[in-house]
Amino acid sequence: MNLFLLQIADTAQQIANAAQAATNENKDLSMINLLFQGGPLMIPLFLLLVVAVYFFFERYLAINKASKIDENFMSIIKDHILSGNVAAARSLAKNTNNPVARIIDKGIQRIGKPIDAIEKSMENVGRLEMYKLEKNLSVLSLVSGIAPMFGFLGTIVGMVQLFYGISSTGEYTLSTIASGIYVKMITSATGLIIGLLAYVGHSFLNAQVDKTVNRMEVASSDFIDTLQEPTR
């Protein structure tokens, strides 16, 4: 009985020592040093983070620029068309640099043809503009899926190395195992964080694209309605 109690006390002491060692190490361990201890797979994870940040801001700026349009743009186009001044409408649309203006410009070029033909031409331009807006968004989706996998792979590789070292040396103190495990878990945490950030960024940009596409559809509908109104 006494031997059993001594074993329990010894185990508890080892756990306390391991916890104290981990606490002392955490005091001296900065976030940068902690990340560096994640191993070689932290390099591709860092590259994935750089790629995700770059393409997020590149797409954000492009989508934000495409969504900006003068609130009076369609009113001016409508006034020109109803007054028969098609040349002025075409000039305004051609000199305005955004997806809505390019769609309207294509519609103006087709004035005189059947409505179905005009709508078809505008839809083709709309699809092309939508493709431009969604360009490179797939990169963020790819990063959101790959980054956690790299993180788990780093943890698995680290655990294999840890237990191989234990089997080779025969040293398996709780302190060694605990410190080895939390260091190897760094890659998993980093991969999950990068994947989450990429997923949120992808969802946010998709929402912005949807808003811009909605403006394009509303402008196209207004333009078709204007063509069916009698001229002044």
Rank of each mutant, 00 (worst) to 15 (best):
Leu3Thr: 07
Phe4Lys: 14
Asp10Val: 14
Asp10Asn: 14
Thr11Pro: 00
Ile15Pro: 04
Ala16Tyr: 09
Ala16His: 15
Thr23Pro: 02
Asn24Phe: 09
Glu25Leu: 10
Asn26Ile: 13
Lys27His: 01
Asp28Arg: 04
Met31His: 00
Leu35Asn: 03
Gln37Leu: 07
Pro44Cys: 00
Leu48Asn: 07
Glu58Tyr: 09
Tyr60His: 14
Lys65Trp: 06
Ala66Ser: 12
Ile69Gly: 13
Glu71Phe: 05
Ser75Arg: 06
Ile76Gly: 03
Ile81Trp: 01
Gly84Val: 03
Ala88His: 02
Leu92Pro: 01
Ala93His: 07
Ala93Thr: 14
Ala101Trp: 07
Arg102Ala: 14
Ile108Gln: 08
Ile115Trp: 00
Ala117Asn: 06
Ile118His: 00
Asn124Tyr: 09
Gly126Arg: 01
Gly126Lys: 00
Lys132Pro: 06
Asn136His: 06
Leu137Thr: 12
Leu137His: 05
Ile146Trp: 05
Met149Val: 12
Gly151Ala: 00
Leu153Val: 01
Leu153Ala: 00
Gly154Trp: 05
Val160His: 04
Leu162Ile: 13
Tyr182Gly: 02
Met185Pro: 04
Ser188His: 01
Gly191Arg: 05
Leu192Ile: 14
Leu196Arg: 02
Leu196Val: 08
Leu196Glu: 02
Asn206Cys: 01
Gln208Val: 03
Val218Ala: 15
Ser220Lys: 12
Ser221Met: 13
Phe223Asp: 06
Phe223Arg: 02
Asp225Arg: 08
Thr226Arg: 05
Gln228Leu: 08
Gln228Cys: 08
Pro230Met: 09
Arg232Ser: 13
